[in-house]
Amino acid sequence: MSIPTEKKINSAFSVKQGQYLAFIYYYSKVNGYPPAQADIQKYFGVSAPTVHQTILKLETDKLISRT
């Protein structure tokens, strides 16, 4: 059995999106508030536009909601 890398696991979200969702969930549980985009950027070691686009995609897919 192998784990897919960047392909979709199912029709809901990709592996990378799942990693972002897990990070947001556990960061919120540990700290009591959701992470800033800068926190996500630092954790994943990606650029700010990459984080922003992924967050927008998660919001568009109704997997998260921003306030």
Score class of each variant (00 low, 15 high):
residue 24 I to M: 15
residue 55 I to S: 05
residue 41 Q to N: 04
residue 16 K to A: 12
residue 18 G to L: 14
residue 2 S to D: 13
residue 17 Q to Y: 10
residue 23 F to E: 01
residue 13 F to W: 09
residue 20 Y to I: 04
residue 47 S to H: 10
residue 48 A to Q: 15
residue 58 L to E: 01
residue 45 G to T: 03
residue 5 T to D: 13
residue 11 S to K: 09
residue 5 T to H: 06
residue 42 K to D: 12
residue 44 F to H: 03
residue 27 Y to I: 04
residue 67 T to C: 11
residue 3 I to W: 07
residue 28 S to K: 15
residue 64 I to W: 12
residue 61 D to E: 12
residue 24 I to R: 07
residue 59 E to L: 03
residue 46 V to T: 11
residue 3 I to S: 03
residue 62 K to T: 05
residue 40 I to F: 00
residue 64 I to P: 07
residue 59 E to M: 06
residue 27 Y to V: 01
residue 66 R to N: 09
residue 2 S to G: 15
residue 45 G to D: 00
residue 23 F to V: 07
residue 44 F to W: 02
residue 48 A to M: 15
residue 66 R to L: 13
residue 66 R to F: 00
residue 8 K to F: 07
residue 42 K to V: 02
residue 44 F to M: 02
residue 54 T to Y: 00
residue 10 N to R: 13
residue 17 Q to H: 12
residue 31 N to K: 15
residue 5 T to N: 08
residue 7 K to A: 01
residue 43 Y to A: 13
residue 42 K to C: 02
residue 52 H to R: 14
residue 3 I to Y: 13
residue 66 R to W: 04
residue 58 L to Y: 00
residue 66 R to A: 07
residue 46 V to D: 06
residue 5 T to Y: 12
residue 66 R to Q: 13
residue 46 V to I: 14
residue 50 T to I: 00
residue 63 L to T: 04
residue 37 Q to A: 11
residue 51 V to H: 01
residue 62 K to W: 06
residue 61 D to W: 03
residue 24 I to F: 12
residue 50 T to S: 09
residue 50 T to A: 09
residue 10 N to I: 06
residue 35 P to K: 02
residue 65 S to P: 04
residue 51 V to C: 02
residue 51 V to G: 05
residue 37 Q to V: 06
residue 54 T to D: 08
residue 13 F to R: 05
residue 10 N to C: 12
residue 27 Y to K: 13
residue 21 L to R: 09
residue 23 F to P: 00
residue 7 K to P: 00
residue 16 K to V: 14
residue 2 S to E: 10
residue 17 Q to N: 14
residue 51 V to S: 01
residue 43 Y to F: 14
residue 16 K to I: 09
residue 18 G to E: 12
residue 21 L to G: 04
residue 10 N to K: 07
residue 53 Q to P: 00
residue 29 K to E: 15
residue 51 V to M: 00
residue 29 K to I: 08
residue 8 K to R: 11
residue 38 A to M: 09
residue 35 P to A: 03
residue 63 L to C: 01
residue 7 K to W: 09
residue 53 Q to Y: 11
residue 36 A to P: 06
residue 34 P to N: 05
residue 28 S to R: 13
residue 31 N to I: 05
residue 7 K to Y: 05
residue 39 D to F: 08
residue 46 V to Y: 11
residue 60 T to I: 04
residue 28 S to A: 15
residue 39 D to W: 11
residue 28 S to V: 01
residue 13 F to P: 00
residue 34 P to I: 05
residue 47 S to I: 04
residue 24 I to P: 06
residue 6 E to C: 11
residue 47 S to G: 11
residue 49 P to E: 05
residue 64 I to D: 04
residue 16 K to F: 15
residue 34 P to D: 00
residue 57 K to H: 03
residue 37 Q to M: 15
residue 23 F to I: 01
residue 61 D to K: 13
residue 23 F to C: 06
residue 10 N to Y: 08
residue 67 T to Q: 09
residue 2 S to V: 11
residue 26 Y to I: 12
residue 43 Y to V: 10
residue 26 Y to G: 06
residue 16 K to D: 14
residue 46 V to H: 08
residue 7 K to T: 06
residue 13 F to Y: 15
residue 55 I to R: 05
residue 58 L to T: 01
residue 1 M to I: 08
residue 56 L to T: 14
residue 38 A to F: 08
residue 66 R to V: 14
residue 5 T to V: 11
residue 41 Q to G: 05
residue 36 A to S: 11
